[in-house]
Simulated assay, not measured.
Amino acid sequence: MLVQKVCSRKDAIAKILTQAQGQEFYTTYNPWSSHLPRRLLILDSSFNPPTKAHANLLSKALASKPLNYFDGSLLLFSTNNVDKQLTGASVLQRAQMMELMAQTFDQDVAVGFTPYGKFVDKAQAIQAWFKSPVELYFILGYDTITRLFDPKYYSPVSAKEALAPFFKTCHLICANRGENNEEFWKGVEQKVDRIQLDPETEYISSTLARSLLASGRQGDKLNDILDPRILEFIRNENMYE
């Protein structure tokens, strides 16, 4: 039923994506009707496709704080990623899959897009959209957080100098997949909350999901990796074949 509901919005979502070109941040699905969040949890990923690991990341981050600590969550996709070219699912298909994932949560979870690849720029765009100060909590995987502090993205200024405005209103939640690079963590001056994925989702990735789908394999493995509604949508769209 949920898949049909989201599919019925395909034209409406496509229209938003077309009209929003050039905007720094916009939403295609926004349940924040009664209020705008003041403390926002953000899961920024490629969602190609969204997996049970994505859902576990959001659930674990929500559970890491007291009940109702966050008054809104956001699934965020950067249309111009600094490290990746767009392959696989189209932006429209990702918007639909992200909406499917968002609606499986009890909390108000929106779906948003930005053209920016750098977190400093993403944060500024989101803050500008809200028009009043918002505390932003970005959930990052270990690989992403190491890129965030990589000096090569900020030359000629230092990463510390470039990220100083970011950390005035933004916080980081890092999800470990068994990594334990203490040397890296010693060099991170900012406070970063660390969470651990459930063991059954630690191995899950979008790359693995695409590989299994491309091979034509069915069965329990895909059901372990993808929510059944996401899997239904992918098969309806004949994606990743």
Rank of each mutant, 00 (worst) to 15 (best):
N180M: 12
L213G: 05
I126A: 11
G88I: 05
I204H: 02
S59G: 00
L17V: 05
K5Y: 13
A95E: 10
A61M: 03
T51R: 04
F105S: 09
L17K: 05
P199Q: 12
V134C: 09
V91P: 02
M101G: 03
S155H: 09
E24G: 11
K60H: 01
L76P: 01
F119H: 06
N80A: 09
E237R: 12
L76T: 01
Y116E: 09
D44G: 14
G141P: 06
H35W: 08
N223R: 14
I230E: 11
Y203M: 12
Q218F: 02
I13T: 13
I225M: 05
M1V: 10
N30R: 07
Y29I: 02
K118Q: 14
P66A: 10
K186S: 14
G72D: 01
V192E: 11
Q19F: 08
G219Q: 04
I195K: 08
D220V: 12
F149Y: 13
E183S: 13
T144Y: 04
L231I: 13
A55L: 07
L40R: 09
S211V: 05
P115D: 06
F25C: 08
N30Q: 08
S34K: 12
Y116F: 15
L212H: 08
D106K: 15
P156T: 06
D108P: 15
A14N: 06
M101A: 12
K160V: 10
N30A: 02
F149T: 03
Y29W: 14
N238K: 15
A55E: 14
D143L: 10
L62R: 01
D150C: 10
G117A: 07
K84M: 09
E237D: 08
A14I: 00
Y69G: 08
K118T: 04
D121R: 09
V111Y: 03
